[in-house]
Deep mutational scan, measured.
Amino acid sequence: HNLTITQGKLFFHYNPKLCLSEIHKMEEVSGTKGRQERNDIALKTNGDQASCENELLKFSYIRTSFDKILLRWEPYWPPDFRDLLGFMLFYKEAPYQNVTEFDGQDACGSNSWTVVDIDPPLRSNDPKSQNHPGWLMRGLKPWTQYAIFVKTLVTFSDERRTYGAKSDIIYVQTDATNPSVPLDPISVSNSSSQIILKWKPPSDPNGNITHYLVFWERQAEDSELFELDYCLKGLKLPSRTWSPPFESEDSQKHNQSEYEDSAGECCSCPKTDSQILKELEESSFRKTFEDYLHNVVFVPRKTSSGTGAEDPRPSRKRRSLGDVGNVTVAVPTVAAFPNTSSTSVPTSPEEHRPFEKVVNKESLVISGLRHFTGYRIELQACNQDTPEERCSVAAYVSARTMPEAKADDIVGPVTHEIFENNVVHLMWQEPKEPNGLIVLYEVSYRRYGDEELHLCVSRKHFALERGCRLRGLSPGNYSVRIRATSLAGNGSWTEPTYFYVTDYLDVPSNIA
């Protein structure tokens, strides 16, 4: 807008934040220059609390790290170098490059900038070799853009010569660093050979998330399962459950009422301010606690030095998902009996873990797994792929695949051998790939016309006998059925096997 004052003059007093240069501009645009008398524009009460600059400061050096910015700028000295009290560095987070010096300023003089007072450097006698002032900004957020400017702080001049310097606002972004852990990993099994893994992005990506790394490792069953005799009275049979499938998407929606109208769909109840505040506090606490764990609990591995020492970490090797089922080394339970199943799973520490690289999504279907087997899954978020990966501390989750139908069934015939004193040795093959492992066998036998009897055969007993022995049988026709019990439950009964026990007292003698 054009402003013209045809008559009258300007009068400025007691404006401590208004620089004289701005008042002189007002004289020019209003056409009143030359009308004012000496005392109409006070030299001592206008701009006496402001830094009124008329020179431009330029930054000469900028260096960044993930949490620091090192700045240096060209030296500046007023005509009387004693008038320079120091520099004021202003900075704040700036997602967009549209910041002005006066953003967030209120009537009390406060604003949204963080201000650092910096002492002037030592003055050199040689004007050509003056030290460049600077400042190291610490405690910054990774991968965050900051708006920065600097200006001088000078003393009051009796001659009211307006001098000083100020830089333009520059924008500097800190470097990326390792992201925080992925949030809320959930693993479920939808079949006997697959596990579905879902997660949420890290709360602090500290860069642009480029991919996720998912490692999985087959877990050995508890050692007590191999040692305890679950045929003993009072000892509860062990059981394991597989990871249940995901709930429906509708039930997972946030901010939804727990109660549904019987007449149909209901609208979600909005969260109160107290609920939102509580969630923010919980989120802040979780982030602080995660940072504490990362800094205190997890110790970084030592990389190899120039002395030739090897990095103890196993090298990563990509495998196809079809090879995942046989990740671990199978060892027989008892070496003397080769027909026992290889369900003991000690994992070799030198073995390469299978892994998958996930790009542009937060889910993965891990296939080719062994049925009813526990897996430990390790999830890392990465925001750099080359020249070397920059990934987060791992988040861990466990899951067990679903049982395989008929995996616990005894394959092959049940054979028998009759000894003296009416002892019958029953023999059968253990299931080759049971659900988890076989903890015991149930032997059901009966003599024709009598009630059915049951015998429990422990895992250890089966390994020693290759089956079991029935003792003290009365003469007669017998039928026997056997079924295995694994961590997933009972298998199917075998087809009945028949044998006849004679009275050993009636056996004919070869003595003449």
Score class of each variant (00 low, 15 high):
Tyr478Cys: 00
Ile410Thr: 03
Ala263Asp: 14
Ile482Val: 09
Gly489Leu: 02
Cys468Glu: 01
Arg481Ile: 06
Ala395Gly: 11
Glu260Arg: 13
Ser274Lys: 07
His352Thr: 04
Asp273Arg: 08
Ala309Gln: 12
Arg471His: 11
Asp409Leu: 08
Pro475Gly: 06
Asp409Ser: 14
Phe246Cys: 15
Tyr445Leu: 04
Ser341Gln: 12
Arg301Leu: 05
Pro338Trp: 14
Ser458Val: 05
Gln219His: 11
Ser320Leu: 09
Asp291Ser: 03
Phe298Gln: 01
Asp222Glu: 08
Leu235Ile: 13
Gly306Tyr: 06
Glu279Gln: 05
Ser268Asn: 08
Ala484Thr: 15
Arg240Gly: 06
Lys233Ile: 15
Pro270Leu: 04
Val359Ala: 13
Glu430Phe: 11
Pro312Lys: 03
Ser274Glu: 09
Arg390Tyr: 02
Asn421Glu: 15
Asn206Asp: 01
Thr373Cys: 04
Glu260Leu: 12
Glu404Tyr: 14
Thr502Met: 14
Ser284Val: 13
Lys236Glu: 02
Glu362Val: 11
Gln256Ser: 04
Thr502Pro: 13
Thr288Val: 14
Tyr441Lys: 00
Leu237Pro: 09
His371Met: 02
Glu452His: 15
Asp222Leu: 12
Val423Ser: 04
Leu437Trp: 02
Arg481Phe: 08
Ser367Arg: 06
Leu487Ile: 08
Ser492Phe: 02
Trp242Ser: 12
Ile366Leu: 11
Glu260Cys: 07
Leu321Tyr: 08
Tyr504Pro: 11
Pro244His: 15
Leu235Pro: 10
Glu258Ser: 10
Cys269Lys: 01
Gly207Cys: 03
Asp261Ser: 10
Gln275Glu: 13
Leu213Ala: 13
Arg390Gln: 13
Val297Lys: 02
Ser320Cys: 08
Thr494Val: 14
Gly472Asp: 03
Cys456Ser: 02
Val358Leu: 10
Leu453Glu: 06
Glu388Ile: 15
Ser458Cys: 14
Arg471Leu: 04
Pro508Arg: 02
Ala335Glu: 10
Tyr292Gly: 03
Leu505Ser: 10
Ile377Asp: 01
Leu228Lys: 03
Ala394Phe: 04
Ser257Ile: 05
Ile276Cys: 14
Glu420Pro: 15
Val324Phe: 09
Pro434Ala: 05
Arg353Met: 13
Pro434Tyr: 02
His416Asn: 14
Pro434His: 07
Glu452Thr: 06
Ile438Leu: 11
Phe355Val: 09
Arg318Ile: 12
Val358Lys: 06
Val414Gly: 02
Val331Trp: 04
Arg471Ile: 05
Gly264Val: 05
Tyr292Lys: 02
Val324Pro: 05
Val501Leu: 07
Phe337Ser: 12
Ser315Glu: 12
Arg318Val: 12
Thr497Arg: 13
Thr307Leu: 07
Glu362His: 15
